[in-house]
Amino acid sequence: MLTLSQVTKRYPTGDRALTDIDLTLPAGQVMALIGPSGAGKSTLIRCVNRLVEPTSGSIRLGDTELTRLSGRELRRARRAMGMIFQEYALVDRLTVMENVLSGRLGQVGFWRSFLRRYPADAVTEAFRLLERVGLPHAIDKRADALSGGQRQRVGIARALLQDPQLLLVDEPTASLDPKTSRQIMRLIRELCAERELGAIINIHDVALARQFADRIAGLRAGEIVFDGRPEALDAETLTTIYGEENWGEEEWDTQGQAADEASSSSVEPATRLSLATGGAS
């Protein structure tokens, strides 16, 4: 279980990226973070694994208080948190298998990883994960020869090779087409269910969040303004999160078809709706 209590991030300028964030994520639950650009979604995820240092508050993963860790203890704790990145963070010149095995870098030591001498159990698990994410045919391909969806699947397999307790996912569909976006979100949800993994997914596409998340948290200006079930995300709530807009239900059906066809997931919901209607209010 992940627990955030009164987590605040304040920059030296005095600007606050997060203010008094309280969240509890049970094992096995998939939670989507939604909100406009600059709302603090990526900052929140990065505070959890300490890529961004919170100014104050408590972050606990199980019995471990993450905010008190440093050095070797922090590196060990990060192994329990698999990170999936928007831009994949793969090494293009390495093969798919080598990129997946890099998920064990924090456990095998520098020289074994440098010489690419991974334990047999890690290699066996990497093969199994690549089969599970649908890439058994691409094991020896270089990462730069893959499509966006394939690259994201490699990133998912790499994160799972860490055998994490928690997945932190930063805009996994931002660069993908609508069909591939749904496939990736479905895969993440299925894997979390299979492994009883909690996941926090920063995502701009509200329709995908409604379709695949168990729970949605809406951020605005660094504060949580909504936390509930996807079906509770109505037009009034969307206005609270994003601001005034014509939030027609046809744009936010639970299958996500209308919103996906309107434009790519990298465009914010309010802009997407305006483009889809030709700017009409």
Rank of each mutant, 00 (worst) to 15 (best):
E131D: 15
S265E: 02
Q162L: 08
G218Q: 03
G38C: 12
L105E: 01
Q29C: 10
A276Q: 05
L233R: 04
A193S: 15
A145C: 10
F127Y: 14
T13D: 13
K41P: 06
R229V: 12
A138C: 14
V123C: 11
T95L: 02
P54N: 03
G40Y: 01
A193Y: 12
S281L: 14
M83I: 01
L176V: 02
D253Y: 07
T124W: 11
I45H: 09
G248D: 14
L105A: 14
L187T: 04
A17H: 11
P178V: 05
I139E: 03
G38T: 10
M185W: 00
T254C: 05
L101T: 01
P26S: 13
V52Y: 08
I45N: 09
L233M: 08
I203V: 15
R75L: 14
Q257T: 14
W111L: 15
N99V: 10
L129W: 05
E223F: 01
V154Q: 00
A221T: 13
S181E: 03
N246S: 14
E236L: 13
R78Q: 09
K141T: 09
R78G: 01
R272D: 06
A259H: 04
T237D: 06
K141F: 13
G228V: 03
D20H: 12
A159N: 04
G278H: 10
V30L: 11
D227P: 04
A17E: 01
L4F: 02
V96E: 06
G35W: 00
E250M: 07
L18Y: 09
I21N: 09
R72M: 05
M31A: 06
E196M: 12
L135S: 01
S70I: 04
I241S: 02
R116S: 14
G148N: 02
E249M: 07
R79Y: 11
S266T: 11
I59W: 02
Q150V: 05
G14H: 02
I21C: 07
L273Q: 06
M185T: 00
V206R: 08
S37P: 08
R215H: 11
L94V: 05
R60K: 14
E249Y: 07
L208F: 02
G278W: 08
Y88S: 07
G14M: 01
A159F: 08
N202Q: 00
I188T: 04
E196P: 05
E65K: 10
C192P: 04
D163Q: 15
G228D: 03
L197P: 07
V48M: 03
W252H: 06
S102I: 02
V7H: 08
V169T: 01
V91M: 13
T64P: 06
V267T: 10
I84M: 06
L90S: 04
R195S: 05
G228K: 09
L166N: 08
Q211W: 07
L115T: 15
V100F: 08
N202V: 05
A258E: 12
T239V: 01
A217M: 11
F226T: 10
I184D: 00
Y118L: 08
Y88H: 11
R78A: 09
R215Q: 08
S37C: 11
Q150W: 12
A221E: 14
F85A: 03
G38H: 10
T124D: 15
Y118Q: 06
K9A: 04
D92H: 13
H204D: 07
R117L: 14
G62C: 06
S42C: 00
E250D: 14
L105C: 12
A17S: 13
S58M: 14
S264P: 05
I84P: 05
R132I: 07
Y88L: 00
G82W: 00
A89G: 09
